[in-house]
Design a protein around this nucleic acid. Structure first.
Lengths: 205, 205
DNA sequence: TAGATTGTTAATCGATTAACAATC
DNA sequence: TAGATTGTTAATCGATTAACAATC
């Protein structure tokens, strides 16, 4: 959708949106400068202006960017108003935590349900979301026209899960299993390996 | 510690280690080529060779890299044999999942305990780890000489938590709260915003 | 030897920063 | 007007890839 924006700029868009939404809504910051945003987030101010230019929300010399409009532009850029559906596979500890997490709604994403192979879990509600058998993954993805999925299964099951999700019509996967999953060319994947991130931090000390 | 390696190469080190460890240990892959690794992980093969060069494990023309030695070199590079202690702040859903997760041990990291302000949780065990009051953070960090911390508190509490952790001697923070935290110059921080990552995936479709 | 693979040097590519003109 | 801030063009920096010599 936004194929013309640098990868790294795209990654910063939610950060800007988050920050701007967190500012007090009492009229004290109707306008905000790129310098102020840069300082708050630890970025260079030219970088901020360049990133914000992709949203097509023009800043005004001397005053900065209109906060409300900039938020709206970022929301528009990130398609927050297009409601999108995601499914989660793997209702273990991490999966359960994600099912109870309310933050996806801020980006127009609804985590619709969970899929798990465990008979003990199937049929239960976690965080108010239904847990279904992985056997009916296709059906459940179709029901809500899900295009997004989160993999929170053990490493050994991740690759197969990814393939099943792709068969079910999923186009983008957020993978928490500590393996690189091999989905098709046109399937977007982001891997988050929590332990690896902690290890990276440790080696930077 | 490894200040002379490019940021992005460092980030790939745990990926190589994970992959090599996952190979069958039955002698069928005593040696592995950069091309094979590259294909499995979706990287360029020159990139793989360049990254592996930082580990100082030499490959042999025609045969590739000795798998066991390469694993040892990566483990050494990532200081897996130095036992490091981490503490977790915020024993909510995500925090609880992390306390039960065994993956940190693969990198020589022990998640020692959790800290939480909630009286209901203080004194309990989650994933076999004690939950203590955030009031004794300094004491608990000192006890295990923790240098690493994970923040899994609500966004509103993240900045203060980070400051307290720094006062307690923490040098690196993995932050799951959806805010940019402002720690000191020499404190390493990695932010993981799960919802933002899903939103990024959605905008790439 | 011929072929496969490593390791290194040079070239390319993309992202960030610097410089500066435009604007309110 | 003077000063602050945006937006853009050029320069820099860092990461990846291409080319190729070295080696087994």
């Amino acid at each position: 959708m936004n194929r013309d924006i640098p990868e790294f700029s795209l990654q910063r868009m939610p950060i800007y949106l988050n920050y701007l939404r967190s500012l007090p809504d009492d009229g004290t910051c109707g306008y905000i400068s790129s310098g102020a945003i840069a300082q708050a987030l630890g970025f260079g101010e030219v970088l901020v202006r360049k990133d914000l230019a992709y949203t097509c929300c023009a800043g005004r010399p001397k005053v900065g960017y209109p906060r409300a409009e900039l938020i709206a532009a970022l929301e528009n850029f990130l398609c927050v108003n297009d409601k999108k559906c995601a499914v989660l596979v793997g209702a273990g500890g991490l999966g359960s935590a994600l099912l109870s997490y309310g933050g996806f709604a801020h980006y127009g994403i609804e985590l619709a349900c969970a899929l798990d192979p465990d008979r003990e879990k199937i049929g239960s509600l976690i965080g108010g979301k239904h847990v279904y058998s992985v056997d009916i993954m296709g059906e459940k993805c179709a029901e809500c026209s899900a295009t997004l999925a989160i993999i929170a299964v053990p490493a050994a099951a991740a690759q197969q899960t990814a393939e099943e999700l792709v068969s079910a019509g999923i186009k983008a996967i957020l993978n928490f299993a500590p393996v690189q999953i091999n989905a098709g060319e046109d399937i977007k994947v982001i891997n988050i390996d929590v332990a690896a991130n902690l290890a990276i931090l440790a080696s930077m000390l």
